[in-house]
Each structure stands twice: as C-alpha cells, then as structure tokens.
Design a protein around this nucleic acid. Sequence first.
DNA 1: TCTTGACTTAGAGTGCGCTCGAACTCGTAG
DNA 2: CTACGAGTTCGAGCGCACTCTAAGTCAAGA
Lengths: 142, 142
Amino acid sequence: MKIGELAKRSGLTAHTIRYYERIGLLPYADRDRSSRRDYDASILVWIEFLGRLKTTGMPIRDMLLYAELRERGSGSEAERRALLERHRESVRAHVDELNACLLVLDTKIGGYAETEQRMKDYDATLPERRRKPVGARSPRTG
Amino acid sequence: MKIGELAKRSGLTAHTIRYYERIGLLPYADRDRSSRRDYDASILVWIEFLGRLKTTGMPIRDMLLYAELRERGSGSEAERRALLERHRESVRAHVDELNACLLVLDTKIGGYAETEQRMKDYDATLPERRRKPVGARSPRTG
DNA sequence: TCTTGACTTAGAGTGCGCTCGAACTCGTAG
DNA sequence: CTACGAGTTCGAGCGCACTCTAAGTCAAGA
C-alpha cells in the first residue's frame, strides 16, 4: 500500500503520515526501488490505536514513549502497561470532570429556558398590538 | 480586588487575565486613578464559567461569541442558549467517544496483564537458577 | 528620600501538532 | 516521447492559547 492509499484508509493526510514517521510515532516504512513508502495493512491497527490515544488527549511525547517501548519489543510490557494505566486514570478523571461540566451546562441552559418561558408568559398578557416583535429583556442569567 | 488577588482566586495568571481582557473574553476592567485594574468579586463567577467552557474543549473564538452575546445583554438569550446547547451536544459526543476509548484501553491493558501472567507461569516452570532476572518476551500484544 | 514590589503597556516568544510549499524523481497512459 | 500524477525530502509557516520581556509608573513602608 502506498502512502496515498494509507492516507485514505487511516484518515490521516500523507503529510501527517510522513510527519509521524519523522518524529518516530510510525516506524520507518520500507521503500520500493524508487524510494516510495510501501505499507503493510497491519500499520492501520497501530494508527488506529494512536488515534485513540490522541482522542483521549495523550500528548505526542507520551505516544512517542509508548511507541519506543513497543519498538523495543519484549521486556517493555510492564512499562507499556503502566503507561496505559496511568493514562486510563487521567482519562477517567477527565470524563468525570466533563460530566460535572455537563451538569453545570444543563443548569445554565435550564435558566435560559425559564427566562424564555417568562418572556412568553409576559407577552401573552399584552394586548395583541403591543407584543414584542423580536427579542426581549428579563432577569440577567449571565 | 487588584489583578494579583484575582489571579490567586481564579487560578489564572495576571498575564492570562490581561490577555483575556485584551481579546474580549473578560470585560474591560475599571481602573483606579493610577490605571490599575480593580475587580468586583462577581467577575469570579464569569471566569469560573469560562473555565468550564475551556475544560469542555470550547475554542476561544466560541467563548468570545458567547461573551459578546452576554455583553449585548437582553435579547441575546435565545442565541446564547442555542450556543450552549450545541456545545453540550458536542461535549456529550466527546464523552461517549472517551468512554469507547476507555474500553479499548481496558482491553489492551488486560492483554498485558495476561502476558505478564504467562511470563510468571513460564518462569515458575524453570529450575531455580534459570529464572528470568527482570523482563521477558512473549506474544507481541503491540 | 529611597527602595520595593505590584502594577501598567506593547509586543515578542513559546510549545504543540500539524500543514504546506518548493523543487525534484518516478512509473505509466496516451 | 511526453505529460501527468503520485510520490520524495527539507524546511518554513500556521493557528491556538498562552507566556514572557522590557521599560516604565506608582503607592506605601523603612
């Protein structure tokens, strides 16, 4: 598989694939006789996993550490596991934080909903000709 | 409250507070006669909310939009609400994604745990003098 | 009076993670 | 044979969100 094909399949751009190789996130790819990169489909599994690490907010320098342990092969399993366990904890903590923020967001949005309801109720008390044309005021919810 | 005090209380640095004012995330602060910023404690509520937006991954340009609607005061509630609702959906989606990644991480970590167990089992079959000193090999889990 | 330290401004610099441009080489289709 | 498109390398540039520096001002305490 050439880099363009890998780009399509992985969702990365060819530029990014080369960049990842340059910094060591992807192993140095075999080249054909005209020095084009030629990939085995198995690289997709690794790229997908990198994507998970990225999605969960792992900085590249840590992915790099993991990638290096992986390149080193056997003997690095305990370290790799420890790295992933630490990361898992930080992701869990972040999820908890996000859920807490979601509650705040719900409350805030709920406040706007009330404001809008009060606006409608108020409008309904006005004689037909005096109703608000577009926006209205009401207790500042922030 | 002077900027140093606000920095302490908000967790931002004075530099960041000035930066936020500069770009419009914080309202232009009143100055004393020697042009030092003098804050009312109420600003803390806004800074805290900005922090939630930031934690949940809202880019500054969107916070800015929200801040502008807020400055505009009444008449912008519906827009503010819509903005927060859109953001809430994206946060929820991200949380789902993170949870999916956590499952993958669990599986991966489980794989290393198995590997380590196999290593221990194998070591236990060796005569005392031949046991591994530190790390060992085994099926590549990636 | 002098010093200290918290403040002011404008603007430059940083770290991250890409993203792009320039100039070049190949292999293949017309 | 030539044109094209997909690839190559190297290095510069970008967008984001700060972060820091330099040079100056000011109020209060020793």
